[in-house]
Structure formats: C-alpha cells, structure tokens
Amino acid sequence: MHNLGFALDGAWRVLLAGLILGAGLPALFALGIRSLAWGAGEASVDASGVTPGTRRPWATALGYLLFAIVVGGVLLGLTFIVATGFGNKLSFEHVYPTIVPK
C-alpha cells in the first residue's frame, strides 16, 4: 500500500497549495473589487434625492494593489506551464520561485 501513502502525502500538499492559490487569490481579487467600490464611494438615495458618496483614493489604490497580487499569482501559473513544457521546473528553494532544469 505504499501508493496510498504517496497519494495522501501528495494530496495534502495539493490541498494546501490549492487553498492558498485557488481560494486565497480569488478572495483577494474579491477584496480588490470591494476596495474599488469603496474607493469610488457609494451613492446614497434618500428623500432629498441622490447624494454622491465620498471618494477614497487610498481604497482605490489598495484595490489595484490587490489586483496586482492576483495577477502575480496568474503569472506564476503561466511561468510554471511554460517552464515545465520546456523541461524545466520551478524551485521554491529561495522562497521566491526560480526556474531550474529538471
């Protein structure tokens, strides 16, 4: 049953990486959308008519920063696909990813 051991060992790593990249990045993306909406300022409607909300430039900036992190994750994925296709692999030895021959 050595295969079961290898599979479970691989499975929890995939689950962990999946939760960080596959659930964490979309969550950051959603927070980015929330920041943009907040930065633009929600208009409020009441009896006196429509009042434009206050703009918050720092929230807009935060939103774009969050999007940038998500784009970074997508680029990491693209790098992985291209690197493995050409017989290389990604190494996380130095924490930041580097491309090394397989």
């Binding site: 790593r13 990249l21 659930a23 990045l25 959603a30 696909i81």
Partner: peptide, 25 residues
C-alpha cells in the same frame, strides 16, 4: 459569476499545484 471565478481558479490552482508536486490529477 463569483462561483464561476472560484470554481475555475480552484481548478487552475489544483491542476498546476498537483503537476508541480508530481501528483498528476
């Protein structure tokens, strides 16, 4: 749409992470 984003991001992350870790799915 939010579910679609979560589903495809999850799928992409799991597929790429599993092939990086040598656990092809």
């Amino acid at each position: 749409p939010p579910q679609g984003t979560a589903a495809q991001s999850g799928a992409a992350a799991v597929i790429l992470a599993s092939s990086q870790l040598g656990f092809a799915l």
